[in-house]
């Protein structure tokens, strides 16, 4: 792929992202499609998010309490697990799970519609494909990922509590007390600002790759794989950049 093609693709991607956002504010509002997508992205992801988060919380709690016990500080497990999950691990891990489940689904569904000429049919019928197919997906992912993150954070904290209380034999009420202590404005904003951007990125990347699918089953596989890989890379890179920005905005220091 030469530089010119790459730049053209980047331009197309930004144009698609902008048009999908503008579509939210212009009639016709695709309420039914958006609700359907929210159901798929949100309700459909709850169980897997809870499962993944629960085990992440347990593993994290086990690692941290073991290390802290050696220093005689295992009573701080709740605080460290809480901060790690709410600020960093929760949003990122849930976004990665979301990219794997929802992003791949969006890319393969749209890719399949492109290859099956269904997208062409919509254009022939005079419909705005971005507004019809992309905007509902972008909106639903942007709104549902923060909700899933809250649910996932809760599950991860519960997993952490289980290990702290029943494996590391700490006081459960002390664990939850420490969690309550770290629930301040800075930590909550740090943890909840990220999923909005992650959801937007996952949906726009996945929709773009799906709509760009060409060349049969192999093209569909490539589009889906690229969508997930690019989403993962963007989540990790954006997480770092956003953390820096939030530190600056919230007056936090490294």
């Amino acid at each position: 792929m030469n530089l010119r093609t790459l730049l053209a693709q980047a331009q197309d991607f930004y144009a698609l992202s902008a048009r999908s956002l503008l579509g939210i504010f212009h009639r016709p509002f695709r309420v039914r499609e958006t609700v359907e997508q929210m159901d798929y992205a949100g309700s459909g992801s709850v169980l897997i998010v809870i499962l993944v988060s629960l085990f992440i919380g347990m593993a994290l709690s086990l690692q941290i309490s073991t290390e802290l016990a050696a220093l005689g500080l295992k009573m701080y497990t709740g605080k460290i697990v809480g901060i790690a999950i709410i600020r960093e691990i929760g949003p990122v891990a849930i976004a990665l799970t979301f990219a794997g489940r929802v992003g791949s689904g969006m890319a393969s569904e749209l890719g399949s519609m492109v290859l099956g000429h269904q997208v062409d049919m919509l254009r022939v019928f005079g419909m705005d494909v971005v507004k019809k197919l992309v905007t509902p997906r972008v909106l639903s992912a942007t709104l549902m990922l923060p909700v899933l993150t809250v649910i996932g954070d809760g599950a991860a904290l519960f997993g952490g509590y289980y290990i702290a209380a029943f494996v590391s034999h700490q006081s459960g009420s002390f664990y939850w007390g420490q969690i309550a202590e770290i629930m301040n404005f800075n930590n909550i904003v740090s943890g909840l600002a990220k999923p909005f951007l992650f959801g937007f990125l996952i949906a726009t990347i996945s929709c773009y790759m799906g709509l760009a699918a060409r060349g049969g089953a192999r093209g569909l596989r490539q589009a889906t794989t690229t969508a997930v890989v690019l989403s993962i890379i963007m989540i990790i890179v954006t997480d770092f950049l956003l953390t820096q920005i939030l530190f600056l905005l919230l007056g936090m220091q490294a």
């Binding site: 269904q118 062409d120 049919m121 005079g126």
Partner: peptide, 12 residues
């Protein structure tokens, strides 16, 4: 486009 309509090979 409204002047035309198309039927694709597999129906789409």
């Amino acid at each position: 486009r409204r002047k035309f309509t198309i039927v694709f090979q597999e129906g789409a």
